[in-house]
């Protein structure tokens, strides 16, 4: 029975999230190290006001996941594979052993800043649930032709996010509701992630990644754009850059990890977005978030590694 670690992307932040971190020396160490690298006080990153910034959100989530990961690691809890959603992919890259935390943190910061600057206003994201992939892509055909709105994430067989220009989003969400969607609403995200509108950011990230040295990963990394279990550093770099401007195929990569033997998914997150998705996928899978209790996660990992 294999174990996978999952790192969340934007949307999993919440005010006061640093308070939720387990009381653990490695958590403190990680926060301190982040401050040293960023040369800034991060203690206010998780206030409601600061979380309005995409950059802060991405940094806060990344630091949060890494703090918990290092706590687990210090006690011998290590996964057999790692996956991160969107900015979480940087966390996954660190967990695989390919990317150093100190190299990843500035990249995450730049990622947020570049994304924010690319489209300062007038763009955003929406979520649709309860339609099939076929229904979604049929609906989207027209909009994608107009090049104002795109499929951003396929999170589950019936859960999608879209990115684009605000008025187009609104019109699409109305159409999705009419098609029978359970939910079709705007997300509190101010940037159009994971679509071609972010092409320049991908290119900048691609160059930035060339300056960073990667080691061979010891466990698989989950490709966001091409949903494969990657063990090749060049392919990992490509994915970290490309996924900023391409659809994230999360549901496929989660199913792939299931087929590769993962049965316990530990979400290193202040919320439980990814573990909720995985729990809906199959009754044979157990997903749990650290937000449900650090100790519970440890206990389950012991049980699953014995199985």
């Amino acid at each position: 029975m294999s174990i996978a670690f999952l790192c969340p992307g934007q949307g999993s932040q919440q005010p006061g999230m640093f308070e939720q971190l387990p009381d653990h020396p490695y958590v403190q160490k990680t926060l301190q190290e982040a401050e040293d690298i960023l040369q800034t006080d991060i203690s206010l990153f998780d206030t409601k006001a600061q979380l309005q910034s995409t950059t802060t959100v991405q940094l806060a989530l990344f630091i949060w996941s890494m703090a918990v990961y290092r706590a687990f690691k210090s006690e011998g809890y290590t996964p057999d594979m790692a996956a991160g959603h969107s900015v979480g992919a940087f966390g996954a890259a660190v967990i695989t052993g390919a990317l150093a935390f100190r190299d990843a943190l500035p990249l995450v910061q730049k990622r947020g800043e570049w994304m924010e600057k690319q489209h300062p206003s007038g763009y955003g994201m929406g979520v649709v649930t309860g339609l099939s992939y076929r229904q979604m892509t049929t609906l989207l055909e027209e909009y994608e032709r107009d090049e104002t709105m795109y499929l951003a994430n396929v999170n589950a067989d019936d859960q999608f996010t879209i990115s684009g220009e605000v008025s187009t989003l609104e019109s699409f969400l109305t159409a999705a509701a009419a098609e029978g969607a359970r939910k079709a609403e705007r997300l509190n995200v101010a940037v159009p992630s994971h679509c071609v509108l972010m092409k320049e950011v991908s290119e900048k990230m691609e160059s930035a990644l060339q300056t960073v040295s990667f080691s061979s990963p010891t466990i698989p990394y989950a490709g966001n754009t091409k949903p494969r279990a990657l063990l090749n550093t060049e392919k990992m770099k490509d994915d970290l850059a490309e996924s900023i401007s391409h659809t994230v195929r999360w549901n496929e990569v989660m199913h792939l990890y299931y087929e590769r033997g993962a049965r316990l998914f530990i979400e290193l997150s202040p919320q439980a977005v990814l573990s909720d998705l995985i729990n809906k996928q199959s009754s044979e899978i157990r997903g749990i978030s650290v937000s449900h209790g650090y100790e519970d996660c440890c206990l389950l990992m012991e049980r699953y590694s014995l199985k």
């Binding site: 949903p227 494969r228 496929e252 199913h255 792939l256 087929e259 590769r260």
Partner: peptide, 13 residues
């Protein structure tokens, strides 16, 4: 069946 996605991907790749 239990490896249907991975088989499809490996054929594609």
């Amino acid at each position: 069946g239990p490896q249907s996605l991975r088989v499809a991907q490996m054929i594609e790749d």
